[in-house]
Design a binder for these strands. Structure first.
Lengths: 84, 84
DNA sequence: GATGATTTGTGCGTATGTATC
DNA sequence: CGATACATACGCACAAATCAT
């Protein structure tokens, strides 16, 4: 997909955890197939900018998705949408 | 060692400081050699989850053990049980 | 092979807000 | 009130794995 600003997807003033909001948005992108299996996500630093949150928040979100096996995180390579 | 939940080692209802309880549990693991010299500890965030305490509490505990030279904390690398 | 850029892994320091003792 | 602790979040520095030149 073509990545543009996604900060409008994030509400900093609700009690809803930021990293959950990020995780949910990424899930929605995968469910709608805008993010397809095998696709590489932007780097953590870039995602942080796109969402307007810190890298820490991005990492919590991606680690949650990795625990759910929706994505795969590879050291030194990047983060990818799971195949199959 | 294989790290699993250690929250049962922590009693939140005693006046005993949480970080001391964590430090003592880590010491016990080292004395029993479940944690051997050179072993890498889980990251701060993971330890926080395993013990059911905050990262703040984990850091106080590890900094105490580092001051006692029982462990070595290396920026960007991790935390390791001291050799010898 | 060597070098530098990219990307994830990890720890450091700090801040805010809440709750409990 | 102050001390302790929790939860969340920010930004940074340094390390390690990988990739491109």
């Amino acid at each position: 997909m073509s990545w543009a600003d996604r900060s409008e997807r994030i509400n900093h003033r609700t009690p809803r955890l930021l990293w959950l909001q990020v995780a949910d948005d990424l899930k929605a992108l995968m469910e709608s197939r805008e993010l397809a299996p095998g696709d590489k996500l932007p780097g953590e630093a870039e995602l942080a900018e796109l969402y307007g949150v810190s890298r820490d928040t991005i990492r919590r979100a991606t680690q949650e998705l990795a625990a759910e096996k929706l994505i795969v995180i590879l050291h030194g390579r990047g983060t990818f949408v799971s195949e199959g």
